[in-house]
Write a protein that binds this DNA or RNA. Structure first.
Length: 408
DNA sequence: TCTGGGGTCCTAGGACCC
DNA sequence: TCTGGGGTCCTAGGACCC
C-alpha cells in the first residue's frame, strides 16, 4: 500500500446561501446579510455574511437574537430550491477534476486526487504535492469565474484533516496539510473544530480539562473512553491524522440508490407553525399536507416506505417521535391514516402544538407499478400535473385548507 | 415571540425466533 | 426450573452536521 500523501480535498463554498443571494442581488455586496427568515418570523440563522458575523451573528442562532445584535442587517428568507441549482453547477465543475468524489452536503464535497498527479503536472511544479495544490486553486478559481461563488479547500492525507483544513482556509483560501504535519496543524485548535465533536462531547472533554486537540491526541485512551465510549479510539486515531485515507467507505449525505435496497436514507418534512395551534382542523390539515409532500417525494424518487414517523413538538418545546412499520407504501392516503392513528394515540397533552413532522424511512425501491394498486393511476395523474405546473398545482382538500394558513 | 429543516449514525431495550 | 445465547427487527431517543 502506498504511503499516504495529501490527496483528499474538502471543497467548501464560503457562506454559500449568502453568496447565492448576493449573486442574485448584487446590492447585498458589502452589507451584513442574514439568511433564514424575515425578522419577526420564527426561525434561525441558516447562513450569515462575514459582515454579520463581525456583529456576533452565528448560524443556528434564533432570528430574534440575530435581530437584536444586527438590526440593520439585510434579512432574507431561505430559498433552498435555488441553492440546489447552484450547488449542482459547482458539483459538475468539480467532478470534471477527479474520477472519485463525494457529496457531503449542499455546500461541501470531497474529491480524491490520488493518482492524478501526472495528469496535472506542469513544468515548474515543485513536486506532486505542489501540483495538486495548484490544481485545487485552479478549481476554486474556475468556480468563482464560471458560477460566481467563492469557495475554500483543504487538502490532506485524511478526510477529517482535509475538512478541518478547509475551515482554516476560509475565506477564499486553499490550505494543504502535508503528510506528517497533521498533528502540528491540529494540536493548537479547540476540540470543537474537529468534525464529530459537538457541544455535548466538548462539554465532556472540557470537564476533563481537555480544551485543544493536542489534549485529545495525547490523552490516555482509557480516559477518553471513560467519557466517549466506543468512539474514543477512532476519534483519537483521526486526531492523530491516522486512517480515513480513502473516500470509499464514507457515505454521501443524500443516498439516492442502493442496488441492495438497503440504505436508501429517509424522506422527511416538518413545519413549525407561525403560531402554536390547538385547533384540530389546522392540525389535521398540516398532517395531511406533510403526508402529501413526503409521499410525492418518495414517488418521484421511485421508493416506498415501510416506516412512518410522526414528530410532535409542543409549545414548551417538549418533542416526541412515534413510528410504525407496515407494508411498504408511497400513498398519502395510507400514510395519512397511520399518521392520524399515531397522533391520536400519542398526543397525550392538551398543550398547544408548535411543530409537526413526518418522516418516511425503511425505504424500498418501488417495484413495477402494480395494476392492482388502487392509488397508482391517480398518483400518475397527480404527479404528472405537478411536474408540469408545479407542486402546488394540486392538493388534497384537507391539505389545501392548511395552505390557507401559510403566507402568500 | 429564544430555539428551522433537511439529513446521518449510534445506542439500548424488548419482541421474537431458533 | 429458572433461564442459555445469538440474530434480527422494531421503537425511541440523542448527538451531530450543514
Amino acid at each position: 500500500m502506498a504511503l499516504p500523501a495529501p490527496r483528499l480535498c474538502c471543497l467548501d463554498l464560503d457562506t454559500f446561501f449568502v453568496s447565492v443571494e448576493r449573486l442574485l442581488d448584487p446590492s447585498l455586496n458589502g452589507k451584513p446579510v442574514v439568511v433564514g427568515a424575515l425578522p419577526g418570523q420564527r426561525g434561525v440563522v441558516t447562513s450569515s455574511s462575514y459582515e454579520a458575523r463581525a456583529l456576533g451573528v452565528r448560524s443556528g442562532m434564533s432570528l430574534t437574537e440575530a435581530y437584536r445584535l444586527a438590526p440593520r442587517a439585510v434579512y432574507v428568507p431561505t430559498r433552498h430550491g435555488i441553492y440546489g441549482d447552484y450547488s449542482a453547477r459547482v458539483r459538475q465543475i468539480a467532478e470534471g477534476y477527479t474520477p472519485v468524489s463525494q457529496i457531503a452536503s449542499i455546500d461541501e464535497m470531497f474529491l480524491d486526487f490520488s493518482g492524478c498527479e501526472s495528469l496535472y503536472f506542469v513544468p515548474g511544479d515543485d513536486g506532486p504535492d505542489a501540483t495538486i495544490e495548484r490544481t485545487v486553486r485552479r478549481l476554486t478559481d474556475e468556480i468563482q469565474t464560471r458560477v460566481g461563488l467563492p469557495s475554500s479547500a483543504g487538502i490532506a492525507t485524511s478526510r477529517s484533516v482535509a475538512k478541518v483544513a478547509s475551515g482554516a482556509a476560509k475565506p477564499r483560501g486553499v490550505l494543504m496539510v502535508r503528510a506528517g504535519a497533521e498533528q502540528s496543524f491540529l494540536a493548537p485548535l479547540p476540540v470543537r473544530k474537529f468534525p464529530g465533536i459537538g457541544p455535548v462531547a466538548e462539554e465532556k472533554l472540557t470537564a476533563l480539562g481537555m480544551k485543544t486537540l493536542r489534549d485529545v491526541m495525547t490523552a490516555p485512551l482509557s480516559t477518553l473512553q471513560g467519557v466517549l465510549g466506543a468512539w474514543a479510539e477512532p476519534l483519537q486515531r483521526a486526531c492523530r491524522g491516522q486512517g480515513g485515507h480513502e473516500l470509499g467507505r464514507e457515505r454521501p449525505a443524500f443516498q439516492e440508490f442502493d442496488p441492495q435496497g438497503q440504505t436508501l436514507g429517509t424522506i422527511s418534512n416538518e413545519r413549525t407553525f407561525r403560531e402554536d395551534v390547538r385547533d384540530p382542523a389546522s392540525i389535521q390539515a398540516m398532517l395531511c399536507s406533510l403526508c402529501e409532500r413526503v409521499c410525492y417525494r418518495a414517488r418521484t424518487r421511485g421508493v416506498k416506505a415501510r416506516t412512518v414517523t410522526l414528530k410532535l413538538r409542543y409549545a414548551d418545546f417538549e418533542t416526541l417521535e412515534r413510528s410504525r412499520t407496515f407494508a411498504a407504501t408511497a400513498s398519502e392516503l395510507e400514510v395519512y391514516r397511520v399518521v392520524q392513528d399515531l397522533f391520536r394515540k400519542h398526543r397525550e397533552r392538551r398543550t398547544a402544538i408548535r411543530l409537526l413532522g413526518i418522516r418516511l424511512s425503511n425505504l424500498e425501491v418501488e417495484r413495477q407499478l402494480s395494476l392492482f394498486d388502487d392509488h397508482g393511476p391517480v398518483h400518475r395523474v397527480v404527479d404528472g400535473v405537478r411536474q408540469r405546473f408545479g407542486y402546488d398545482a394540486l392538493h388534497l382538500a384537507l391539505a389545501a385548507r392548511d395552505r390557507e394558513h401559510e403566507e402568500p
